[in-house]
Nucleic acid binder design. Structure first.
Lengths: 258, 258
DNA sequence: AATTATTTAGTAAAAATTACTAAATAATAA
DNA sequence: TTATTATTTAGTAATTTTTACTAAATAATT
């Protein structure tokens, strides 16, 4: 949405190439250096912070639409994306509070109450995890701001997005116990401390410093390399890589962490 | 949908009180006597078997809409209903194969290609479990047939409903390991053999005849009564009830079966 | 009252988890 | 160069959980 012509066309004709009444919202979790963050955006036409989201093209699969949305904001393609819940409460987005003037200012086009955008919408929630230090946040003409927030310092979100975040976080943590979904958050070669810190941060709880990595190794998910890395005084841990085959097997069949 | 006037109104004005482009489908599993069945329906306007489903009223929450649909078919209200996935592939229901004449015959009203019903739809999948011996299947004017099928002898289903069933079954079984969702399938007072058979059937695998019930008791989910039941030669097992408090606690927080 | 097969309690064996100890290591400082 | 150091990581002991197996209790039947 980078030109006024694009915006005008989206508002007037969007219902022809997007599916009306259906949107999606993405809880994009970002990890780096033992910090867990969430990507939020501020629309020009809406006062508070929201999850990034958008509409689904009539030619797209749901996950493709989610991927397009994630890529538009973060610049990253083909992130691990997981559908976690669909939201459809009749008053999840109260359009009676719709401020026509503010929308006109923001979009440069007058949106009437019979426009396809101003109608009840159910929204499909996806979550993703990425390394936030590798993203390049991108706004567009309808987005005033786009930023990473620490997961423990989130502002109050608009609509039902608080509930979405809490459900997304829960779904992500449950999945983390059953599937190895951490591969995108670590460099190709990493230390046991790094993967230990990653899981502790994502799960929001302490894991045993010795037993947890041993479990990953016992499961066959990690392969030890002959290399080491110097990361400071008295510290030269071995480097590991994921065993690609075991990893994708575990993604398919599931594993159990404890 | 029990009069021609209702059908006409639904076809012509349904988009005013239902959300267009969004439907829901319910995989209703039925258990009784160590048999697991699935409820299927045959629409008059469609050749093969389908999951029961319908549209969402603009005033309804998603789960309320699902509940209404389940009640319309089975006569049972307030079943345990669980959203498991939303389906939105662009070619999940190929409306180019829509047979206008057949629809006219079935519905008594001519549906043109610009009708709200003939457009791309994403569908929200729910599953439920009930005791099929307690249901009273109900058709309506648009439904030719409605019946329970053994889970191992399902016909090929229309649209993407085969995939829905497989996803629903998987979701139900995963949940069964984590939450006690069997309460509706047993009489209020039941024997350890009965709950053992229930779980074996739902999970589709053998569970130890002695250890499995012990686990349920150890978790505190079951309370032993002073009563027994005579169910045949040499058989007078104790009766048990669910501990309501522990049960709802486990529904909320989760438990782990193995 | 004896017989029977299911029900269910009990326990032993095995496996998995958790807690703890200490050896190996390489960067630093003497 | 050698001693010191704190992290890394291997090893093992303790504990808990799971699984497998045995047998006692039970009430309907003969």
């Amino acid at each position: 949405m980078n030109t006024q012509a694009e915006i005008d066309d989206f508002v007037l004709n969007g219902h022809l190439y997007y599916i009306p009444h259906v949107s999606l919202d993405c809880a994009i979790f970002g990890y780096h250096d033992q910090q867990l963050k969430l990507l939020l955006i501020k629309h020009k036409a809406i006062d508070g912070w929201c999850l990034p989201g958008g509409y689904i093209k009539r030619t797209e699969k749901l996950v493709e639409a989610a991927n397009r949305n994630v890529k538009e904001r973060t610049g990253i393609d083909n992130l691990f994306l997981q559908q976690f819940k669909t939201f459809g409460d009749p008053n999840r987005a109260r359009m009676d509070e719709f401020d026509e003037e503010k929308w006109f200012e923001a979009t440069g086009i007058r949106i009437t109450k019979d426009n396809w955008l101003i109608d009840q919408t159910i929204s499909i929630g996806f979550y993703a995890i990425t390394d936030f230090s590798k993203t390049e946040l991108q706004k567009d003409m309808l987005i005033e701001d786009c930023a990473w927030f620490d997961i423990n310092e989130l502002p109050k979100l608009e609509f039902d997005h608080d509930e979405m975040v809490s459900e997304a976080l829960h779904a992500m943590r449950v999945q983390l116990y059953h599937y190895p979904i951490g591969i995108n958050m670590l460099p190709e070669k990493f230390t046991l401390s790094e993967i230990h810190a990653l899981y502790e941060t994502l799960l929001g709880k302490k894991l045993d410093v010795s037993n947890f990595p041993k479990k990953l190794i016992a499961l066959g998910l990690l392969k030890k390399l002959d290399e080491k890395r110097s990361i400071g005084a008295h510290r030269s841990p071995h480097l590991y890589v994921f065993d690609k085959e075991k990893y994708s097997q575990a993604l398919k069949d599931g594993v159990v962490l404890s």
